[in-house]
Design a binder for these strands. Structure first.
Length: 263
DNA sequence: ATGGTGGAAGGTCCA
């Protein structure tokens, strides 16, 4: 049975409900993982998501900032959330799908502007977040699991519009990329999207709001990811970025990433 | 070196 999973940093779920409906109408995912929902759990649009068919929900939110959610047409169980890097920011929710597949949804800290952990606490927190994830996943058996989210790092040269011009820009610096690669290696994760789309192809999931014409300038980055454990990689069938969503009315600055997997 | 825009707020922080 083919499962279709989408991950999307919506930058406020309440502001983006029409866009979420449009994604459902055009792509019809079985599971939608959201980041930056920016809403407390008691104000989450539970009924609106249920009306779209996503009656199963695992949410972890807070006022104004951060917030993650897993909305599903299929049974979810063992819903949990976890805090990282000494904060209580809502950046990680996870659960089981049909009690057989573990699904993690992350919103990794952006890290501020200055790529120096001594001078920038936000960048320090980002690196610590990744280190703690690495330790946590290193203690687990990497099987039957999917990890999605806005990881706020574009690891490959063709994950950014200009490797040269972004090498010292937070999201593409060598120290972050090394930390992300270590998390993948030690945690036993495979980049499912790049497994299907060659590394020689430019691939972006985010385009800044601070551009008069995001499409014409196309100065994007691939910050949003879908990873799977090695035992599932053969089941991954198709992945793409719904980049048209960046041009929908009242857009998020991120586009959804969608993957089909045979489970 | 700076600012550009958007969201949640209702001043300012964050991306």
């Amino acid at each position: 049975m083919i499962f279709r999973i989408a991950t999307w940093n919506v930058n406020s779920i309440r502001r983006r409900l029409p866009s979420i409906k449009r994604l459902v109408d055009t792509t019809n995912p079985d599971i939608i993982c959201l980041q930056e929902t920016k809403v407390e759990d008691n104000k989450f649009p539970t009924l609106e998501m249920a009306a779209l068919g996503y009656k199963e929900q695992a949410i972890y939110g807070q006022k104004s900032y951060h917030g993650v959610a897993i909305c599903s047409r299929h049974d979810l169980s063992g819903k949990r959330h976890r805090d990282w890097a000494g904060t209580t920011e809502a950046r990680h929710v996870y659960c089981w799908i049909h009690s057989t597949i573990k699904l993690h949804n992350f919103y990794v800290p952006a890290g501020g502007d200055q790529p120096n952990p001594q001078k920038n606490k936000k960048f320090q927190q980002k690196l610590l977040f990744l280190e703690e994830l690495t330790t946590w996943f290193s203690g687990q058996t990497p099987s039957r699991a999917i990890l999605v989210g806005d990881l706020n790092i574009a690891p490959l040269e063709n994950d950014v519009w200009s490797h040269h011009q972004l090498i010292n820009v937070v999201s593409h610096t060598p120290v972050e990329v090394a930390a992300l690669n270590k998390l993948m290696r030690k945690g036993g994760w495979i980049d499912a999207v790049r497994h299907l789309i060659p590394e020689t192809d430019k691939l972006f999931t985010w385009w800044s709001y601070r551009s008069s014409d995001w499409k014409a300038s196309n100065r994007g980055r691939r910050l949003d990811h879908i990873w799977v454990t090695p035992d599932l990689i053969a089941n991954v069938k198709l992945a793409w970025v719904v980049d048209s969503a960046r041009g929908w009315p009242v857009p998020s600055d991120h586009a959804p990433v969608v993957m089909d997997i045979d489970l």
